[in-house]
Amino acid sequence: MDEELLKAYCRSAYRVRLRTGGTAIIRIGEPLPVALRELANNRDWGFFTAWNPRSRPQSPATNRATQRRLLADLRADASLDIHPALGKGTDGWREPSFWIVGIAPDALERLGDRYGQNAWLVGHGAGAAELRLR
């Protein structure tokens, strides 16, 4: 992976929309924000998008269609708690995403394969967010 792309992932803010309004920001290497800890409890979680596979820009229509397929895949598992989210870089990059509670790291890896993603975040409970690379 390109070193600049890796740096961009690490500098990004991974925003989760709160049901009470506002957002909580997940950052790589930092503990889960307090506002999300009760939701995560003692479960695995991930931050994932289907936008721009392999970090190659796609049309908005293609990205929206792929993201809808991802949401349908996630909703097929009733045990998952799915929250709207947004990955936001320091250079203007933005990708609608999902914060998914109850998803195992290996399930995220399968999604990474299916949707052609270079990277995603994983975590457990209140622990630190980790960047997983393809």
Rank of each mutant, 00 (worst) to 15 (best):
L133W: 11
N42A: 09
Y9G: 03
V101R: 12
A104G: 06
R54Y: 14
D2G: 01
G127E: 15
E3S: 09
A104R: 10
D106G: 02
L131M: 10
A35R: 08
G46C: 12
A126P: 12
E95V: 08
D106Q: 13
T62I: 15
Y14W: 06
G89W: 11
H83I: 00
D73E: 14
N118Y: 04
R27P: 00
K88R: 04
R56L: 13
L133N: 00
A35N: 06
E109R: 15
A78Y: 04
P84N: 03
F47H: 07
P53Q: 05
G127S: 13
S79P: 02
S59W: 14
G112D: 10
D113P: 00
E38K: 12
L5K: 00
R27N: 03
R114V: 13
L5D: 08
P105C: 03
W45C: 12
R94P: 06
D113A: 14
A13C: 12
R110P: 02
A50N: 04
H83L: 09
R94K: 08
N41Y: 05
W93R: 09
R94G: 02
P105F: 01
E130Q: 12
R69S: 11
C10L: 13
F48K: 15
L74V: 14
E109D: 10
G102M: 10
W99A: 02
R68E: 14
R134L: 13
S59P: 04
R19M: 08
G123F: 10
D81C: 03
R110K: 13
G87Q: 11
R43S: 10
G21C: 00
D73S: 09
R54M: 08
R15D: 10
R17W: 15
L74N: 10
A85V: 14
I28A: 06
I103K: 04
Y9I: 08
D106V: 14
G29Q: 04
G29H: 03
N118K: 13
R15Q: 14
L86K: 11
F48Y: 12
W120A: 10
R94N: 08
I26E: 00
